[in-house]
């Protein structure tokens, strides 16, 4: 459903993505790994066009998002995103954060949106935090609100941009547990992460990036047993 064709991205003179080609199949979980600055987050952000590719196509459900501006919001509605820094709306309670797009984008009634928000927040273990504001929540709780906010839209795919990088080890585990529960529930999950163990645990496919390029797209088991490229071998040996 999501396909990047010859996508490149430059910031001024720095190349951050070099001719990337990849197709994400429905209902699979992908982990994008690689060292910092490899272009992982930029690749992810190109999928919903938060970053506009310098050249190339981003095709979602048959629509080239780089061309068809009118389709951008309808497509974004179907692709959830969870950020490293949570990015919750600071002036809204947890419940309002989840309700916001349901009201504005899905045009639900207040009651419908509230029922959905309570349901999603309960699913991530935050039934007791509905009326708390972001600043009253812990990092792990904030990220779970952000996940509930994305899930409430019932997206076909969900993008995780280093979802645990700003969390301490304990909170990391609580968030990873929630993400893991989403595995094979009908969505395509694309996760940029530095948690290699977690990637190994949840991903069907590993996308290994280095220096603005995709070096490998390999089944998880195979990638960890015998990576194809020397750079991946080196990367994995540094992890242990």
């Amino acid at each position: 459903m999501i396909k990047l064709e010859n996508v490149s991205k430059k910031f001024h003179d720095t190349v951050v993505l070099k001719n990337v080609n990849i197709e994400f199949e429905p209902e699979k979980t992908y982990a994008i790994i690689g060292s910092s600055g490899a272009g992982k987050s930029t690749l992810l952000r190109c999928i919903n066009l938060l970053e506009k590719p310098s050249t190339g196509k981003v095709i979602v459900d048959g629509v080239d998002l780089t061309k068809d501006k009118a389709q951008l919001n309808p497509i974004r509605e179907k692709i959830g995103m969870v950020f490293q820094n949570f990015n919750l709306f600071a002036h809204m309670s947890a419940k309002k954060n989840v309700m916001f797009a349901l009201l504005k984008v899905k045009k639900m009634s207040q009651e419908e949106a509230e029922i959905e928000a309570v349901k999603q927040l309960t699913n991530v273990g935050l039934a007791h935090r509905l009326d708390n504001y972001p600043h009253q929540l812990s990092g792990g709780e904030k990220q779970r609100v952000a996940i509930a906010r994305a899930l409430a839209m019932h997206p076909k795919a969900i993008l995780f941009d280093e979802p645990t990088s700003a969390l301490d080890p304990e909170m990391t585990q609580e968030v990873l547990k929630v993400i893991k529960a989403l595995n094979h529930t009908g969505m395509t999950n694309i996760i940029v992460t530095h948690e290699i163990k977690f990637a190994q645990e949840v991903a069907d496919i590993i996308i290994f990036m280095n220096n603005a390029e995709i070096l490998e797209v390999t089944n998880t088991k195979e990638f960890f047993e015998k990576p194809k490229t020397d750079r991946a071998k080196e990367f994995l040996s540094n992890m242990i």
Partner: peptide, 12 residues
């Protein structure tokens, strides 16, 4: 980040 999050949700 909040503005990006809203864009990512498809908000106008």
């Amino acid at each position: 980040g909040q503005i990006e999050a809203a864009h990512a949700l498809g908000v106008k």
